[in-house]
């Protein structure tokens, strides 16, 4: 799966939880879920669950801790897909 495809699918997943919609206009690796998109931390857990479903992977607590940006999420997804 290409990086672009992962990021496009990720964008669709996070959209319903975004409170700062302007943040979606420039959705790229540096985009910070909390600071740029204002997704609250409980909804960030929802994002993780949706990512698990979308990519058919399991995100453990250690990976969860480091998921602050789109780039973090992309790397975690890539690693899990490779490992699976």
């Amino acid at each position: 799966m290409s990086e672009k495809e992962i990021i496009d699918r990720l964008k669709k997943i996070v959209e319903p939880y975004v409170q700062r919609v302007e943040g979606l206009q420039n959705f790229q690796e540096n985009t910070d879920f909390l600071n740029d998109l204002e997704i609250n931390s409980a909804n960030l857990v929802d994002v993780v669950l949706d990512v698990e479903d979308e990519f058919d992977i399991e995100i453990d607590n250690d990976s969860l801790e480091g998921m602050l940006t789109v780039g973090d999420a992309k790397s975690i997804i890539q690693n899990k897909i490779k490992a699976g």
């Binding site: 931390s41 960030l44 607590n61 801790e65 480091g66 998921m67 602050l68």
Partner: peptide
């Protein structure tokens, strides 16, 4: 630094 670790 910020982290998402409610379980801890």
């Amino acid at each position: 630094s910020r982290t998402l670790n409610p379980f801890s």
